[in-house]
Each structure stands twice: as structure tokens, then as C-alpha cells.
Amino acid sequence: MIVATGVRADHLSTARRLADNPADWPVAPRFDPVQRWYHRLLAGSGVEAWLLTWLPGQETDLHDHGGSAGAFVVVAGRLTERTVTGPDGSAALTGRVLSAGAARQFGEHHVHQIVNAGPEPAVSVHVYGPELTTMTRYRFQHGRLLVAAVDRAGAQW
């Protein structure tokens, strides 16, 4: 694991730098047919980064990042990001497909789901700041977000 130094991080630049240099990763990506595989690449000074792999059909729940902003880069394959749009009282899910090389930056109130809806495995790098302490998982029902669970770092991941 790399230890980050410095002040406020540019999450997108950090994600691109890590994604562009897989030879610097402390581990090679692995694929687990039972659950998504992940490994922390970077930690410290208010920022962390994760390497994730996605087999076809693997996905996250609809979730936020507990007040952390972030960015991610698709290193290989293709991922679909579904985001919540609309006012608080009524919302909709919209999706976009991100191919290898595509990146996405988001603020601290971003709610999304990521899925590998394609036929090929995918790899991505995700950067968050400050470090993740909680993530809220949601259900989307009748145009509204309902809290399903709150996961805590060190307990659920």
C-alpha cells in the first residue's frame, strides 16, 4: 500500500495516475466469482484509493460515500454507473456506460450504483477523500431513496 502525503488531493488526478501505472500496484488484479474483489492501493493524509475488479454481473448496491468526495477510472472493460437525479422528494435513476479510460469525479453527496453489465471482466481505480468511514446503502422504491443500511469501515469492509 502507498501512503499519501500532502494537502487536499485532486481525486481525479490521483485516480488517473494510479490507473495509468499498474506496474506500481502492490498486487495484480484478481477476480472472485463469488464477490467483487478489492484492494486498498493508497491511504493517508485524508485520501484513500482502491483497486476493484468486476466480473460480468457483479455490482454495488445503490450507495453514497458517507460525505467523502471521489473519482474513479475504468482501467479495463466497461462499467455502467447509475446515478440518482432529481429533487429529494422524488428521484430517478439514470445510467451511463464508461469504457476503459473513462473517468468520473463526484462530490460528497453523490449516490450511485456501479455494475458490470457487459460480457467482459472490468478493473477500476477509486479514490476518496477524506478516507471512507461510512457508506449508506439505499433501496430505490417508487421514485424515492430509502436507507437500507449504513456500513462502517473496519466492520463491513
Rank of each mutant, 00 (worst) to 15 (best):
L62K: 11
E81I: 10
P130T: 10
P119R: 11
V84D: 03
F106N: 03
E48S: 12
G77P: 02
A100D: 08
V127L: 04
W50S: 04
P119S: 12
S68A: 15
L93F: 10
T83I: 08
A43T: 09
A117Q: 13
A103I: 04
G46L: 04
W54F: 03
N116D: 04
I114K: 03
G95C: 11
P121E: 02
P121T: 02
G86Q: 05
E120F: 00
G101A: 10
N116F: 01
L93T: 09
L42S: 03
H39V: 09
G46S: 08
V123C: 02
H39S: 12
L51E: 06
F72G: 01
G67M: 09
V123R: 00
A102W: 06
V47Y: 03
A103S: 15
A49H: 08
S99Q: 11
W54N: 02
L42P: 05
A103E: 15
L42Q: 06
Y38W: 13
A92M: 11
A69D: 10
F106P: 02
V84C: 07
A122S: 12
V75S: 11
L55D: 02
G86N: 06
G107T: 10
H112D: 03
A102I: 07
V97Q: 12
T60I: 13
S90G: 11
A103M: 05
H112W: 00
H63P: 09
G67T: 11
A76Q: 15
P56E: 00
L42F: 08
T94R: 15
H63D: 10
F106K: 00
A103Q: 12
R40G: 09
R96M: 13
G129H: 04
Q58F: 01
R40K: 14
P87D: 13
T60G: 11
N116W: 00
P119T: 13
G118S: 14
G44T: 04
L93E: 08
H112N: 00
A43R: 07
Y38M: 06
V84Q: 03
G118E: 09
A71M: 07
G46P: 07
G107M: 05
E48M: 12
G44P: 02
H126R: 14
A103P: 02
W50G: 04
V97E: 15
A103R: 02
D61Q: 07
R78K: 13
G66M: 08
P87S: 12
R104T: 08
T53Q: 00
G95K: 11
G67R: 12
V127W: 01
P130Y: 10
L42W: 05
